[in-house]
Design a binder for these strands. Sequence first.
DNA 1: ATGAAAGCGCTAACAA
DNA 2: TTGTTAGCGCTTTCAT
Lengths: 337, 337
Amino acid sequence: MTNSRPTIRDVARQAGVSHQTVSRVINGNEGVLPTTRALVEAAIEQMGYRPNAIARSMARGQTRTLACISQNMTDYTFASVIEGAEVEARQHDYFMLSSSASDPDSFRALVDELVGHRRVDGLIVINPYSDERFEYIPKNFPLVFVGASAHEKNICSVSLDDEKVAYEATHHLISLGHTSIALVTGPMEEDCSQDRTEGYRRALNEAKIEFDETMVIEGDWSATSGQSALLSFIEQGRVPTAVFAQNDRMAMGVLRAARDANIKVPSQLAVIGVDDMPLSSYFDPPLTTMRQDIPRIGQEATRMLLDIIKKKTTDVRDLKLSAQLVIRQSTSEKGGD
Amino acid sequence: MTNSRPTIRDVARQAGVSHQTVSRVINGNEGVLPTTRALVEAAIEQMGYRPNAIARSMARGQTRTLACISQNMTDYTFASVIEGAEVEARQHDYFMLSSSASDPDSFRALVDELVGHRRVDGLIVINPYSDERFEYIPKNFPLVFVGASAHEKNICSVSLDDEKVAYEATHHLISLGHTSIALVTGPMEEDCSQDRTEGYRRALNEAKIEFDETMVIEGDWSATSGQSALLSFIEQGRVPTAVFAQNDRMAMGVLRAARDANIKVPSQLAVIGVDDMPLSSYFDPPLTTMRQDIPRIGQEATRMLLDIIKKKTTDVRDLKLSAQLVIRQSTSEKGGD
DNA sequence: ATGAAAGCGCTAACAA
DNA sequence: TTGTTAGCGCTTTCAT
């Protein structure tokens, strides 16, 4: 059997027209006689013809493909951004692919593969400042950052309004009467961790609670790091009455450590996180958190990227989304859920 | 500025050779004089030339690109498979992209985009039987299934040995003295759920415990469905002494429901899951589970796929991997962790 | 060891 | 409205 699939010319021959007419038909072009169109469509149907995306990319000089890249796929937040981005791209007839690179070296290779080798027309980079990876991001290419505003001031971004969200989380604890509030941060090299720390400080300031840097412990977003954080307070014999963990996973680690140490949550220790991942409401006790609409972030990023590619806009935008306080039993005996 | 990047001919001109020689150099071809090679490499370096993947795909008739597709990205198991697949592909100089489609219609569109439009040389399909999506999978194309053996008997697959894993999980509960063991399954349209149910039956049989189908409740892999499952037993006033949930998320839902109903785990109710996701050890109590090496599944699938593409093999293989029992406090007071 | 010519499947001008 | 001619950037013959 001849394994090669029909090309535009095979279809043309079959339909008795020129290959150009076939091209017009598959591109939904105007100026084709309805009868001719029907003829061509019949031939396409009959031969099972499908246009070759590679050849089209080649001829057009653009791929109609976008990519979403992150450190990994298993982080719920990243995956959610990607899902949102995929849906939006599909609606605009673009193909969104995703790929991950855990370290700067493979990130560099990935970007080369995607941008250097011209596989895509635009790029969404999730958490661009998680390590030195930002050094490998090409500047003069359609680009949107997710999770942090760009340091260079001509790159668009979409992220959570980290400062505000942290302020609100801390404020919630303060409003419950807490004054001894520990903070478990993400890696401080990430802007997001810094901004959330700023929001925490502002809330304390406003409540005239002195900022105590020994109450701040740096984690790495993992549950394990949240657990260690609380353990270290326990070992030092100075357990706070409340903890603001900068994400839910670390908050879960804090809950685990509290349980192991027989510290009652929320009566002895209130805990709040950020994200509202699906499992947050299943924890013991269910976790109070700042819920963000993560797919929306991916969606907005894709829109921005397409605007840039289609040159609909030239102005740099930094979109900041809000989060919503979801009160559960980790801060209040009578929390929801 | 001329935005167009240098082509193979620009490099050739610069180096004073033919474009063909440049092609030989970038492909690491033999038969180029070291001096010539150096000349070309210098020109490449100087002009910042990078080969265009699209053009190469076009000329070669293959893309050196693979895809991994699933229902979503947020499921920890799926994401883990993808990560494993990415790493393996990279080692073979292939590019692995991933994309998700939640329903059969968008799955169909995705497959058309990838295979119909010739964007990739091969496909890894995760959970092909989760709905009618398998109908849209092209048969005569390099393909590997993950999560279920193919029903048509000429497609390779990699999956967990579901029957065996379920047998072992159930056996663990039996060995602790349980005889009233409920089962919470995944969607029964998925082979994986059926096989795990089979393993459960075999273990019961072997222990001369009668299989009682009212002890089986179908879930959908979500924590919520696990919670509902236990709730329905509670409402019926016949709470089992043990539950085998076919994945960790559902097991977590069971734990939550038990907590809400003041049922002590593990003294009144033992619970075991499958997966060992990162948060499993953080639950209350930490969850006993069957740990699988998920990235390995993605890795093996990629290897198989490349073997098929390179025609290194023609025989159909169905690789079944084992899992390892990890005992924590949800089945035993003195469990590990 | 190197170069010239042809062609991958399509789109973009231009002509008829 | 339709067809003809180029050409996208590269690889693959086949010469030299």
